[in-house]
Amino acid sequence: MSRARPPRSRLSRRSFIQRATFLGGGVVLLGPACKRSDEKPKAPPTDTGPLGTTPGGQALRTFSSFEYAVVAAATERILPKDEDPGALDADVPVYIDRILQTPALEPVRDDFVGGVAALERRANRMFQKGFAALTPEQQDELLTLFKDSPPRSAEAHFFELLTVMTLEGFLGDPSYGGNKGKVGWRLMGFDTIGTVAMAPPEGHDGPKCLRECGVHK
């Protein structure tokens, strides 16, 4: 069951993000989903009670079980399992569910959850079935439709968000819940030449640092 949410006709407009190439490492925030800064900050998310769990039994924090199934299916189409591990092998949906609870991503959370609903609506309209129940070919057809939507459309914005969040979950530090077993790093060669001594130390707690960085009391 999906939780009740205020109806929304469109996602936020995509914002213009200029690369900071000189930095080399792409110090670009997630980017899309800028909101007007003069809007009142929202109240922190209220505890919506247990949302259910993943099929693996992990408690959900952002998505309902139903939404989680859509996210899981969509991320697995972005990075499907083949001879190498895919998004589900890396626990990418778990990453997205958790990271969307961080305060910095509040506007992104709204956009993402809205995008999942839009994907689900379109699946029902085109195929009379939920997204998670479609064949991989049908899922790809729908995602391609979102991808190829006009550049500033809500659909194109959601596709980009989905891709970026999937890659963060696949290739981020495992302490955030994704990149399970460092399968993402292995696929990209982050464990080979030119990448020595680069991973965070064992025991690094990324989410804790995100919450507390700079608080040195």
């Binding site: 490492g25 792409g26 110090v27 670009v28 925030l29 997630l30 990271i99 961080t102 910095a104 963060e168 290739l171 981020g172 530090d173 955030y176 680069m198 991973a199 965070p200 130390p201 690094h204 990324g206 640092c209 995100l210 960085c213 700079g214």
Partner: peptide, 15 residues
Amino acid sequence: DFIHDEILNSRRNFF
């Protein structure tokens, strides 16, 4: 505090 965590360092408001 300077940790090789791409999400923390490069993709949020650390800097």
